[in-house]
Amino acid sequence: MTTAMLFAGFGGQGILFSGKQMAKSAMYAGKNVSWLPSYGPEMRGGAANCSVIISDEEVGSPLVTSPDVLVAMNLPSYDKFETSVKAGGYLIVDSSLINKKSERTDINVCYIPATALASENHIEGMANVIVLGQLLKLTGLFDYDTFLADMLRGIPESKAALIEKNKKALELGYNYNA
């Protein structure tokens, strides 16, 4: 089985981080995996996206052009990639930043106000992790506890506050009923 994912939004939203977490967990689970970022002159505020492929087979082209899962975290990304999602795939939209509704009926669309949820819960900047929580619930790609453990693996214990924030964000996203 192969799952192709595309995470897209503004630079600074943690788009690349989200993709990396999926790739890491897949690697720890013994899958083949690739993570390919867009790169360019904009470090902050410009368009950012990354392709992630998780597969039981050898990964061919690492560039995702028609994803099984699309995470859209801003309007330009939504406009650019909404039509590219494979039939039967998933589209997860940060509805606090994107005020459009997909007219597609052949995909599963989920609207989650991740940015608003983050600020209501005083975890600004964690919208990307909230979305990851929702993604886990929708796709069942990884076991929740395993994914959380993988995500926290790289954070030193001295940064306890960051660990708490990540935990809270993932939980919020997972439990949100879209």
Partner: peptide, 10 residues
């Protein structure tokens, strides 16, 4: 090339 340089794999 740029893709191989920038991409992550195990």
């Amino acid at each position: 090339d740029g893709a191989l340089g920038q991409m992550m794999e195990p």
